[in-house]
């Protein structure tokens, strides 16, 4: 059973390590939209404001919206990186995260060693990691490159490896940022098959993207974020059409 529920969720990034006073005067005077002062007089960026939604099993959700709308922050919050300053978040199901392909990777280790390292990150043992590496090898299609340090990989190869790793752990909830579109046509076809397989049953896919063809093809629901708020939430066509109108 995979579910994601949020009520009144808010994330604020304090701006530390700056000259707070001059920054305050300069920015608060001008915009005042997303930058504000919190109770302790700090300048904070309100990254997500009062989000409430509920995502159930089998839903494939596209997060759309302009740059800086809070899409990646929302993905990271759901992954459990940031603790909300207000509101409630509840996530049930194992999370596979494809937010940054380089996360937790060591570019001096080979692809295979990186898979084992990732397995350790997930709390598995080395033996389980090596078993996983064989599984990943089959899907990533990197051939001999799997035993080459990843610093010698192209961007696309990194994406293949990251995607294969994240999906091989059979997550219930897959969080994805749009960088994975860097794969070639052959890989994209296989990725699509794999996602289709993954999302049947009790699983959730959540993807942040600007590419409307991806949204139309893969998703059943779209959430439009703007300035850290949800401005539209519903079936893909409704949300996208509302935008065009």
């Amino acid at each position: 059973m995979a579910t994601i529920e949020a009520a009144g969720l808010a994330i604020e990034f304090p701006l530390y390590h700056h000259n707070a006073r001059s920054l305050k005067q300069r920015i608060l005077a001008s915009s005042g939209l997303r930058l504000k002062q919190d109770a302790d007089n700090r300048v904070v960026v309100a990254a997500l404001r009062d989000l409430s939604f509920s995502i159930g099993k089998g839903e494939r959700v596209a997060l759309v919206g302009p740059n800086g709308a809070g899409k990646t922050t929302l993905l990271r919050t759901i992954a459990g990186v940031y603790e909300p300053v207000a509101g409630m978040l509840r996530v049930e199901g194992e999370i596979g995260s494809l937010i940054d392909p380089a996360a937790g990777m060591d570019s001096l280790l080979t692809g295979r060693e990186n898979v084992v390292l990732r397995a350790l990150f997930r709390g598995m043992t080395e033996a389980e990691g090596r078993a996983l590496a064989d599984e990943v090898a089959g899907f990533a299609g990197l051939g001999d490159f799997l035993d080459v340090p990843t610093r010698g990989y192209s961007a696309g190869m990194n994406v293949r490896l990251a995607f294969a790793m994240a999906t091989a752990m059979s997550p219930n909830i897959l969080l994805m940022d749009e960088w994975f579109l860097a794969g070639d046509a052959d890989f994209m076809k296989r990725a699509e098959e794999r996602l289709a397989q993954l999302v049947t049953g009790a699983d959730i896919l959540m993807i942040a993207t600007h590419d409307m063809t991806v949204v139309r093809k893969w998703c059943t629901r779209a959430i439009r974020l703007e300035g850290g708020r949800i401005v539209a939430d519903g079936p893909v066509e409704d949300v996208i059409e509302a935008d065009r109108a």
Binding site: L89, E94, S170
Partner: peptide
């Protein structure tokens, strides 16, 4: 089945 890292997590401010 691989063992799960953190099957459920939640936070209530």
């Amino acid at each position: 089945m691989l063992n799960t890292a953190r099957p459920t997590h939640g936070f209530d401010a």
